[in-house]
């Protein structure tokens, strides 16, 4: 099981704060499953084009996925993915 938490306006799209996903493989595979589950609006936000993908900050076990292999980062049981919209500034 992978624990997935949603933040910011992503919560508004998926209408929940957290979910558990049975997924194997990579972060990309997990996003595929999530798109199936949450439908077009989520899918568009995440996967449609490479540019759109940049509109999210994905943190896997406390690391931005970019620094641990990007969308190809491998998943293992018990992992935690935090999904944020692109935000900034403080």
């Amino acid at each position: 099981m992978i624990r997935v938490s949603f933040f910011g306006m992503v919560r508004g799209i998926v209408r929940e704060k957290e979910t558990q996903v049975e997924a194997e493989g990579t972060v990309a595979d997990l996003l595929e499953v999530l798109s199936g589950r949450y439908g077009l609006r989520f899918g568009e936000k995440v996967l449609k084009t490479p540019e759109r993908e940049l509109q999210l900050i994905l943190i896997l076990n406390g690391r931005h996925i970019e620094h641990i292999g990007g969308l190809a980062a491998p998943l293992k049981k018990g992992d935690h993915l935090a999904v944020f919209p692109l935000v900034g500034g403080g």
Partner: peptide, 24 residues
């Protein structure tokens, strides 16, 4: 721009709390 066009107007700066906390 995702930050100036959407992120900051919608959530202000406070949305950073969870991000930084997730990063430890």
């Amino acid at each position: 721009n995702g930050v100036t066009g959407e992120g900051l107007p919608t959530y202000g700066t406070a949305v950073l709390v969870n991000i930084l906390n997730q990063l430890g």
